[in-house]
Design a protein around this nucleic acid. Structure first.
Length: 896
DNA sequence: GTTCTTACGTA
DNA sequence: CGTACGTAAGAACA
């Protein structure tokens, strides 16, 4: 080894534990497994990281340092070092060993040193290399590594996950912290390091610390002048000098460990292709990551491991002339689809579409098609006899609408199928779904899916889109089996999938909204807002605090005005409306009334403003309804949410007057189910009293109250009625006596009495509630009237909080979920009836138990009939389903 | 710049 | 210490 060799050295130094841990949290543990139950997400992420860094940084030498279990010399100095950390998750166990196996196969040296941390190993090697004129690159998320940065030492800090890195050079450190790298440990000693359980000086952050360092040169300088530093921070420093000195001792890197000194030891290029292949096989890593292993890892003559890839059908890019034939031959029996396109505010577009079957793949670029080819494609898409599959069929439908194409024949919607199987999981895109499901025999390996299926990539050859369609095809198989296993096939085929087409129409139609009405309301509220704000400030000596800041309010209410402290939140004392009303009743402080008024008017303006931003040029709002968010099976609405437009207060309701009938239509109609959840309760519990209540036609809460309080129905007073009502609904939510008491503002004893009285008269309800939780505990899931399941593993948890929470969910889910089932059935029937009767009226919105309909002129009675039948007969319960109908020019007037 | 917390609108 | 959601603002973190 000659001097010039050393000078050419470019060594990559990786903090193994820290990066493995990051990878573990960046990737889903349940999306990566070796097929035998061993999680491999950290192994995959780490391997991906080292491959990427070696490819981009082209180092000549590499070393990975790991911490050893058990303590280090630092623990002897300070026994709280790194205390308070959460326990390592079970799925992480064993993955470090697997990473070491991968490194061995790659021919990368890894090291551990008893009694020292990985950081110390890295520090020793980095400084030694730099001293010899070489260059070091450190990959570490530990801030202690910042001190090592220098002219020939660069730190790569992971920003997000394990693939995005920030380059820290001396200049970058200086810019970020305002001090040179070698002073960073001084700063860290002052500020502290929460991750290592090293408290710093309270009240001193990076800014103050940097200022002192600039002023006094370094930490010893600061300590020497500690006496002369003014203010709170100075006193705080003097009070915590011991901590600071300890921190500085702890965060100093060790530079003189005894490690192999021969640079040759760390040279890259000793990897063995066959071993690597075997290790990757064991880990069930797919072909993509093997393909990406840079050759510089491997010994001379070694091959990059071959990918055991499944042969994908070749990707065709048919010309206009070829397309009709292709569609009628290769795709005559249907295909899986993946698309590239957009949909925003009713303005969608479909740019490319990939089709896949077992035997063929094609990517079609719509802009390149001539008229005849586009007609052929349109015919194929619209043919209900040709089955199609996509990840998100509604979205594809929207994109197609943008080109005046319509699609029929959907067979499977992967997102819906996945949701029915795992209603409590967050929805993921196609790549995420693939990660969750695809295993090693698939072309698109789970682990690489994130990158492979990135449809936003501008790779122009269509290969990615073709792969995505292939993934859709293969995922359908998996999900179809799973639907069957979970008894959800019919829910998918007969309810959710047809419903998604109906919802697609609602979204595309949108609802007409008059901006002028909203603008007028906003103006009124703006005037009122400044009035109440001024009035509020007048009670604070004119101090214009931010009334929207809970923190500032706490300060004002509980310190300055010294009002009695009420309910607590996680971080302090609550300032919510309930608390403020309580406080006002106790103190009559006028500031509280003004604050509450300000809250109300601010909220209204915020709602109005949000709505206005979503009005399209055509004067309509197109919300998006989601079928795979609410675990109970309800729809949810966003951008904007039209399921939470105010209705409880007069002022709020006025917003509804802006939602009006469409041009060319006669009126807006609202139709809602009356007390659907209680009717479901009656049906499911088979409680004779409750069933009688609904069959009698009397007011429900009045009837129930007369039984609970044992008086004649005409003797029930409003207080009795409202208490009973609260109990009825509370039961469906798993309400405790404590919660009931709080809500009704009565004693807990009275609340308990109420509930007991209720159960005495309606024993069937009590039995039903108890039995449904026990059944769910035994089977592991709850079920709605249509067999929609919700899995609740926490019902058998040892943790009381979790278990009781799951019990409440178990009480509520069948009720809320069955109501969702029923209105979904109703939407399908209403849609079907409107079509069959050839009416132009159309459903615009669904708000859980309500539909809003654009009624065409002259169709009023016909639509009433359709709604009454479609909603009223959606599902046969043991009690009637009652539907209330209202009609008017706008949503407010259509209330009833 | 992103994520968490608080608050509040609906069924 | 009542279920199910979505949005916005401020605070906190990086």
């Amino acid at each position: 080894m000659t001097a010039s060799d050393i000078g050419d050295q470019r060594i990559l130094l990786i903090d193994g534990h820290a990066m493995a841990f990051r990878a573990f949290f960046a990737l889903p543990a349940d999306g990566f497994s070796d097929g035998r139950g061993q999680a491999t997400n950290a192994v995959y992420g780490f391997t991906r990281m080292i491959i990427n860094v070696v490819a981009s940084e082209q180092p000549t030498h590499v070393a990975v340092a790991f911490d050893l279990p058990g303590g280090t010399f630092r623990d002897r100095i300070y026994d709280q070092y790194k205390g308070g950390r959460d326990e390592t998750p079970a799925e992480f166990h064993g993955q470090i060993d697997l990473i070491m196996q991968v490194l061995d196969a790659l021919g990368v040296r890894w090291l551990t040193v008893e009694d020292y941390e990985a950081d110390d190993v890295i520090a020793t090697l980095a400084t030694r290399t730099a001293a010899e004129g070489g260059e070091a690159l450190i990959v570490s998320s530990d801030r202690d590594a910042i001190q090592l940065v220098g002219e020939n030492v660069t730190l790569l800090q992971p920003i997000k996950g394990v693939t995005e890195m920030r380059r820290m050079t001396p200049a970058a450190v200086e810019e970020k912290y305002g001090i040179p790298p070698e002073r960073y440990p001084d700063l860290a000693a002052l500020v502290g390091e929460a991750a290592d359980n090293l408290p710093g000086v309270p009240g001193v952050g990076p800014k103050t610390a940097a200022k002192w360092i600039v002023q006094y040169g370094d930490l010893p300088g600061i300590i020497a002048h500690a006496g002369e530093i003014k203010g709170k921070a100075g006193q705080s420093l003097r009070d915590h000098l011991e901590d600071v000195e300890r921190n500085r001792l702890m965060n100093a890197a060790v530079l003189d460990l005894e490690l192999p000194t021969d640079p040759e030891h760390y040279t890259l290029g000793r990897g063995d292709g066959a071993t690597l292949n075997a290790v990757f096989d064991e880990l069930a890593f797919g072909p993509t990551i093997r393909k990406d292993v840079p050759t510089r890892f491997l010994a001379e003559g070694e091959e990059v491991p071959a990918a055991p890839a499944r042969e994908l059908p070749p990707l065709q890019q048919p010309t206009s002339a070829e397309l009709p034939v292709l569609l009628s031959e290769a795709f005559a029996e249907g295909a899986a689809l993946a698309t590239e396109g957009s949909w925003a505010l009713g303005q969608g577009d479909l740019l490319r579409i990939a089709l896949a079957t077992q035997d063929a793949r094609a990517v079609i670029t719509l802009a390149e098609l001539d008229d005849a080819a586009e007609r052929a494609l349109a015919g194929w898409l619209a043919d209900p006899a040709i089955p199609k599959v996509a990840h998100d069929t509604k979205l594809v439908g929207h994109q197609a609408r943008g080109r005046a194409l319509r699609i029929a024949g959907w067979r499977t919607d992967l997102a819906i199928a996945e949701f029915l199987c795992r209603p409590d999981q967050r929805p993921t895109d196609l790549a995420g779904l693939a990660m969750r499901h695809l295993q090693e025999d698939l072309q698109v390996e789970a682990a690489a899916a994130q990158q492979e299926l990135d449809l936003g990539s501008d790779e122009a050859d269509g290969e990615q889109l073709g792969r995505a369609a292939d993934a859709v095809l293969r995922l359908e198989d998996l999900l179809r089996d799973e639907l069957e296993e979970r008894g959800a096939t019919s829910l998918h085929d007969d309810l959710e999938l047809p419903l998604s087409a109906v919802i697609g129409e609602l979204e595309a139609t949108g609802i007409a909204v008059d901006d002028a009405v909203l603008a007028g309301l906003d103006e009124e509220h703006a005037a009122r807002q400044s009035e109440v704000a001024d009035s509020a400030f007048s009670h604070l000596d004119g101090d214009r605090i931010n009334l929207g800041s809970p923190k500032q309010l706490q300060e004002v209410l509980y310190e300055r005005l010294e009002l009695p402290k009420g309910r607590r939140t996680k971080t302090g004392y609550s300032t919510n409306a309930e608390t403020l009303v309580d406080l006002f009743e106790k103190t009559q402080h006028p500031f509280l009334a003004d604050l509450l008024a300000h809250r109300d008017v601010t909220k209204m303006r915020q709602i109005i403003d949000t709505l206005r931003r979503f009005i399209s040029p055509e004067g309509r709002i197109h919300t998006t309804f989601h079928q795979n968010i609410a675990a109970t099976g309800r729809l949810s609405s966003n951008n904007p949410n039209l399921q939470n437009i105010p209705t409880r207060t007069e002022e709020g309701r006025r917003i509804r007057s802006a939602f009006h009938v469409s041009e060319g239509y006669g009126s807006l109609m609202t139709a809602d189910y009356s007390q659907i959840e209680m009717r479901i309760m009656a049906h499911l519990s088979e409680d004779a009293g409750l069933i009688e209540a609904f069959r009698s036609g009397e007011d429900l809460h009045n009837f129930v109250a007369s039984r609970v309080f044992d008086v004649d129905p005409d003797e029930v007073d409003p207080a009795m009625r409202s208490k009973t009502k609260a109990v009825s609904y509370g039961l469906a939510y798993g309400l405790s006596a404590f919660g009931l008491a709080r809500q009704l503002r009565v004693s807990q004893a009275e609340a308990t009495g109420l509930r007991d009285g209720y159960f005495e008269r309606f024993g069937g309800v009590r039995d039903f509630l108890r039995e449904s939780v026990e059944k769910a505990r035994a089977t592991g899931y709850t079920e709605t009237i249509l067999g929609r399941r919700r899995y609740l593993p926490d019902l058998t948890s040892d943790n009381r909080q979790r278990r009781e929470n799951a019990e409440r969910v178990a009480l509520n889910s069948p009720i809320q979920g069955s109501a969702a089932d029923i209105i979904k059935l109703a939407m399908l029937r209403v849609d079907e009836l409107l079509r069959r009767k050839e009416l132009t009226s159309r459903v615009l919105l669904q708000v859980h138990d309500e539909l809003v309909v654009d009624v065409a002129a002259g169709e009023d009675q016909a639509v009433r009939d359709v709604i009454t039948e479609g909603m009223g007969s959606a599902f046969e319960l043991s009690v009637p389903l009652e539907v209330g109908i209202g009609v008017g020019a706008n949503w407010l007037e259509a209330a009833h």
